[in-house]
């Protein structure tokens, strides 16, 4: 069995390196983007090999789904998709890069090799009963290091605001060439997306899953329905519900972090006994906001205040 694992790792590593090179160094932007999407796909396998199913889930949802959709749609919106000549300017710079890169690689690997990696596994195990959940990753994310997660959800909201601040959507979101299959596919698959994300959310408290993969799946479903031409309630106007939904996760976490102080607890310290319930509520709110943010990132600009009927491919 040992050699099988070794061959598997070797093949995976070789493929990843090759794909990374393809994505960054070969002519043809479309080819680069496709290579990068496959890179994400294989990274999910690498995470599985490294015993990190939580990250594998996120990578599967993000790498294969959301980032792919973002990159492809950006590619479609770029004016010059064709790129002439070599993807980089001078091959002379290799005289610098080969020794420099080699030295960096050697240093990094040597340093990484020397690391004892004591880790915090034991502390996490000890504190797990008090965290309110059984999945250690969820416990770290939503209890021990909840401040990081608060800021992370904040980054998503911030990215959506930043993108809206850059202007309106650059192009109507409906495809230029209409396919009758798309709306049908969207309608057919959307319930599946909702179901799977609800399942992942529920799994999160005791097994890999949780707000992020759930939100990413839900966001992917949202992008699908937009592609299928059903988005009238997603308006950029102040009166629509979208702004509230975008901020829901961030607002809920902040309200909780500050709210517990009214109960005499320090900032972000969950009252004993309520931790499990709080984590679940936070995951629900965060998941919804993550989904909404991903859709906002995909639209690449502030959507119109009113969608016109014709833009929806009806």
């Amino acid at each position: 069995m040992g050699w099988l694992v070794l061959v598997f790792d070797g093949l995976l590593a070789a493929a990843l390196i090759w794909l990374a090179w393809q994505a960054t160094h070969t002519p043809g932007l479309f080819r680069s983007v496709i290579s990068f999407i496959i890179f994400g796909l294989l990274m999910a396998l690498a995470w599985v090999r490294l015993d990190a199913p939580d990250i594998a889930l996120a990578e599967a949802a993000i790498g294969a789904g959301a980032t792919g959709a973002l990159l492809l749609s950006a590619l479609g919106r770029l004016v010059a998709t064709h790129e002439e000549g070599a993807p980089w300017q001078e091959r002379r710079d290799l005289y610098f890069w080969i020794p420099a890169g080699g030295a960096l690689l050697g240093l990094l690997t040597l340093a990484a090799w020397m690391l004892p990696s004591p880790g915090l596994g034991e502390q996490v195990q000890d504190a797990l009963p008090e965290s309110g959940v059984q999945n250690p990753v969820t416990a770290v994310l939503l209890n021990f290091r909840a401040l990081d997660t608060l800021l992370e959800i904040g980054v998503l909201l911030l990215a959506a605001i930043a993108i809206w601040s850059l202007g309106r959507m650059p192009l109507p979101s409906a495809p230029a060439v209409r396919s009758p299959a798309l709306p049908a596919l969207g309608r057919l698959l959307f319930p599946m997306f909702v179901l799977v994300s609800a399942y992942l959310l529920w799994r999160g408290s005791h097994a890999p899953g949780g707000a992020f993969p759930a939100g990413a799946v839900m966001g992917a479903g949202g992008i699908l329905t937009i592609l299928a031409g059903a988005q009238p309630w997603l308006t950029g106007s102040v009166h629509g519900p979208w702004r509230m939904l975008l901020s829901l996760g961030f607002a809920a976490m902040l309200a909780l972090a500050l709210g517990v102080m009214a109960l005499g607890q320090p900032f972000f310290a969950y009252p004993p006994g309520l931790a499990g319930l709080i984590v679940l509520a936070l995951e629900l709110a965060a998941g919804l906001s993550i989904a909404m943010s991903l859709v906002a990132l995909y639209l690449a600009g502030q959507p119109p205040d009113h969608w016109e009927g014709e833009a929806r491919g009806e």
């Binding site: 490294l50 015993d51 990190a52 990484a112 690391l115 990696s117 004591p118 880790g119 915090l120 596994g121 034991e122 996490v124 195990q125 250690p136 990753v137 416990a139 770290v140 290091r145």
Partner: peptide, 11 residues
Amino acid sequence: LAREADPLDAV
């Protein structure tokens, strides 16, 4: 690095 740690480190 997390995999090297014992027990498996969730952080």
